[in-house]
Design a protein around this nucleic acid. Structure first.
Length: 792
RNA sequence: AGGGAUAUGGUGUAAUGGCAGCACAACAGAUUUUGGAUCUGUUUGUCUAGGUUCGAAUCCUAGUAUCCCUGCCA
């Protein structure tokens, strides 16, 4: 896992000793199958823990009795194990801890932090208010802890009907964060739970259960997707009220979608139910089970997950990133053999008896690049390249790919043409002498002559003995959808704009089952997502292990379908095609008009020609601007200050002398966010001496700013800090020269690059010298001296 | 509308005030008994406008765009 904002946090926490080791968890709801969208979240959770020598847990978030099933739980665990994860004994079911959650609920009630509400759901929604209006208390909000405890116990005991009461946290009905308006903690629900049975008739909500379970398991870093940022406030509230220490913290990451792929559980189900695919493990599906059956390896999936980075933005990843991961994994794993998917008979008229050729499994470059000099047999055994061979029968009657013979070849065609030559892979060069056609004009047979090795040919094609080749069915999969964004609202959007992935990468079952399903995506199905052909494969494969993945030369990577292939009726599925430069070239020639993706940001960029007008100021603010500019404050800063009461209040304490403009500048540019948050501890009056030091050139801008930042945190007077740390006074010329010389000596390569013309490096050197001198170097003199030194 | 989050080439991601880098894609060439692989090279980028600074992708202000929140789902 490449460094990202989460690993950064973890490293800091480990460094500071906040936690002895990192503990993470992947918490799927077992209400569906894991798919490619989920591997990202699981990879992030598991890999970061593994990377930092920590522990990772698999946790079934199965608190909703209506959705979770053991079958899904087992399937998810199975798929994740296949991916290579091993959580040891750390498999948890949230439902195993209902008793503990309940105990904490009683504690909250006892503390007065939770109450039993008895209004209807509709009423509760009404009372919650909306973004504009704060919520109003339910009439039951003021029940006493004793009353609430009694009610809660009776809820548990089953004295009330479903929905009659809920337990709510007593937080803040006026909060602009809707999640904090007294979230529901428990609901009454008589559903049979697949694990807990009928032991409970009240079930905890996510916002209560999830933080608790994190804490109970000793999780340190609890990662979830971006839509839970608002929920973090509840998380932190609970941890604080219940006094967990050390406690877990929640961090949110952006989701990752994949082009040409849908990941909504309901839509996937629709595909299955409509017969568009043959089941949840149809190799065209994005589920992990389907990708397993397709023949993708766990290593490839993990490589893919590692490649798409982590950030705090939802993104859609280019399909080619996945395809590339699959291909490059298979390139070094799959021995090469030959199969003809769409056979055209060829008679080698000058070949008398059958021959047996010994052909290598691997091309020269795989052999050459092998780290240990060995290569694999289909069994997996690694042997010397000379013995990594198989017998291939060459007979008078062959088949070649129908595509590889063309009576009317297009320009650039490098295969067989009437009278032309081509090399049969491993067998020699042939010339096509004549061919038969049927009534419809289709070529039915080519008659060819095997030439000597002195013949020349422009291309190489694959072939199989018609007499000894083994019949097989080939399933050629292609992407399920024709458009990059099948879940988009309109055809135009579907063609171009990547949209945010419509799934929850972590909570597998998260989906509103009550909303109508937009089935528009069905119109984007690719009618050619599965093509079935019958052909011949070379006989060597019948001796190989069933799980062998091959490259059928020039065709792609294949393996036996693990469900349908039988020894006497082989079925090979195509895992992925090879890259096909020829197909791309011909396609381009045929359809040159196909426009590239419209650039998405371009439209935004050109739009604001009007020049967005900054929000107008009130007359009072305008007056403030006039007053500030009169004191020497530049207009832009004056406007910033004028519109913010917190900044003005701070500035009110500033000395109105020659230092005022500088103090105002700091206020607007450096202190503003801190002032609004009420975190600035320094007084404006204390800034004047620092400004004076700066204008007298006793300190550099950089030192001044550094001091200011620290003073804002500590509250110490900046001038006192300058005094104490001896920051005033410039740098002697000797010291500056020495620093420059030292930096140049430390970075001779950069010096060379600079002298070779890379003048952008000047900033680099400036930065290095600044760092070396603690910011005390005067920028102007530094720059002239530095340039002189570099050019000299 | 109120609150929150985000914005770097075609795509994804680095750069934590100082060299805009990497991967995929694309294009060109070399090489090749796979129109594969490999190697070399090239093109393309900091949302907009102001400001602070010797220096801004990074800090400040405003704007724009996208997403999330107002379930007794997770």
């Amino acid at each position: 896992m490449a460094p990202n904002f989460i690993t950064e946090i973890i490293e800091r926490d480990l460094q500071s000793g906040k936690y002895p080791q990192v503990v993470t968890r992947f918490p799927p709801e077992p209400s569906g199958y894991a798919h490619l969208g989920h591997i990202f979240a699981s990879f992030l959770d598991f890999q970061t823990a593994a990377q930092y020598g920590g522990r990772y847990h698999l946790r079934m978030d199965d608190t909703n009795p209506e959705l979770a099933t053991q079958e899904y739980a087992d399937a998810i665990a199975d798929d994740l194990r296949w991916l290579g994860w091993d959580w040891g004994e750390h498999l948890y079911y949230a439902s195993d801890h209902f008793e503990q959650y309940y105990a904490y609920a009683e504690q909250l009630v006892g503390q007065g932090d939770a109450y039993v509400d008895s209004v209807t759901g509709d009423e509760m929604a009404r009372l919650r208010g909306d973004a504009r209006t704060p919520g109003t208390p339910s009439p039951y909000r003021s029940r006493t802890p004793e009353e609430n405890l009694d009610l809660l116990r009776r809820m548990r005991a089953g004295e009330f009907a479903d929905g009659a009461h809920v337990l709510r946290a007593k937080i803040d009905l006026g909060s602009p964060n809707m999640k904090l308006r007294d979230p529901v903690l428990y609901r009454i629900l008589r559903g049979h739970h697949y694990r807990a049975g009928d032991a409970w008739c009240i079930y905890p909500m996510y916002d209560f259960q999830h933080p608790l379970q994190d804490a109970l398991e000793g999780v340190t870093h609890s990662m979830c997707s971006l839509e839970f940022v608002d929920n973090r406030a509840i998380y932190d509230w609970l941890m604080e009220r219940l006094g967990f220490s050390p406690r877990p913290h929640q961090y949110e990451f952006g989701r990752r979608g994949l082009e040409y792929t849908i990941t909504s559980k309901r839509k996937l189900r629709k595909l299955v139910e409509a017969g568009a695919v043959h089941g949840w493990d149809d190799p065209r599906m994005p589920t992990l089970r389907a990708q397993r059956r397709l023949g993708v390896t766990p290593e490839a999936v993990r490589a893919f997950a590692a490649q798409i980075g982590v950030s705090r933005t939802n993104r859609t990843v280019d399909l080619s990133v996945y395809e590339n991961a699959v291909r490059s994994d298979l390139n070094h794993r799959a021995p090469r053999v030959m199969a003809v998917l769409d056979p055209l008979p060829v008679t080698l008229e000058n070949l008398d008896g059958p021959q047996t050729l010994s052909l290598p499994y691997w091309p020269f470059d795989v052999v050459r690049d092998s780290p240990d000099g060995l290569v694999a047999l289909p069994t997996g055994e690694r042997v010397a390249p000379e013995v990594a061979v198989r017998d291939v029968p060459l007979t008078r009657e062959l088949v070649i790919e129908r595509d590889d013979f063309n009576p009317e070849p297009p320009k650039g065609f490098k295969r067989l043409t009437p009278g032309g030559t081509v090399r049969l892979r491993g067998a020699g060069i042939i010339r096509a002498d004549r061919f038969d056609v049927d009534d419809s004009g289709q070529v039915t047979r080519v008659y060819a002559t095997l030439l000597g090795e002195d013949a020349r040919a422009g291309g190489v094609i694959h072939w199989v003995s018609a007499e000894q080749g083994v019949p097989a069915e080939f399933r050629l999969y292609d992407r399920l959808f024709r458009v990059p964004n099948p879940e988009a609202a309109t055809p135009e959007d579907a063609q171009a704009e990547p949209i945010a992935p419509d799934f929850d990468p972590e909570e597998i079952g998260h989906e509103d089952e009550t909303k109508p399903l937009d089935a528009g995506f069905m119109a984007f199905l690719n009618p050619d997502s599965l093509r079935v052909t019958r052909g011949l494969v070379e006989p060597s494969v019948t001796r190989d292990p069933a799980g062998t993945r091959y490259q059928f030369e020039r065709q792609g990577y294949f393996w036996r379908d693990p469900v349908d292939s039988r020894e006497d009726a082989l079925v090979f599925g195509r895992i992925i095609t090879l890259k096909d430069a020829w197909a791309k070239a011909t396609q381009k020639a045929e359809a040159p008009a196909k426009a590239p993706k419209p650039a998405k940001v371009q439209s935004q960029k050109t739009e604001p020609t009007e020049k967005a007008a900054p929000a107008a100021l009130t007359p009072e603010q305008e007056a403030e601007v006039t007053r500030l500019t009169a004191l020497g404050v530049p207009d832009a800063e004056a406007r910033t200050l004028a519109r913010d009461a917190a900044l003005l209040a701070f500035l009110g304490g500033a000395a109105q002398d020659g230092t005022f403009a500088q103090v105002a500048s700091w206020t607007a540019n450096d202190l503003a966010p801190g002032l609004r948050a009420g975190e600035v501890r320094v007084q404006a009056a204390d800034l004047a001496p620092l400004a004076a030091l700066l204008s007298d050139k006793k300190v550099t801008t950089r030192v001044a700013r550094d001091v200011l930042t620290r003073a804002a945190q500590t509250g110490e007077a900046p001038a006192a800090m300058v005094e104490r740390e001896n920051l005033a006074g410039g740098l002697s010329d000797e010291a500056l020269s020495a620093a420059i010389a030292q930096v140049m000596a430390d970075h001779t390569d950069k010096v060379d690059a600079y002298r070779a013309g890379k003048t952008a490096l000047l900033g680099f050197f400036t930065g290095q010298v600044m760092r070396a001198t603690g910011g005390k170097a005067d920028p102007a003199t530094l720059n002239t001296s530095l340039q002189a030194a570099l050019n000299g």
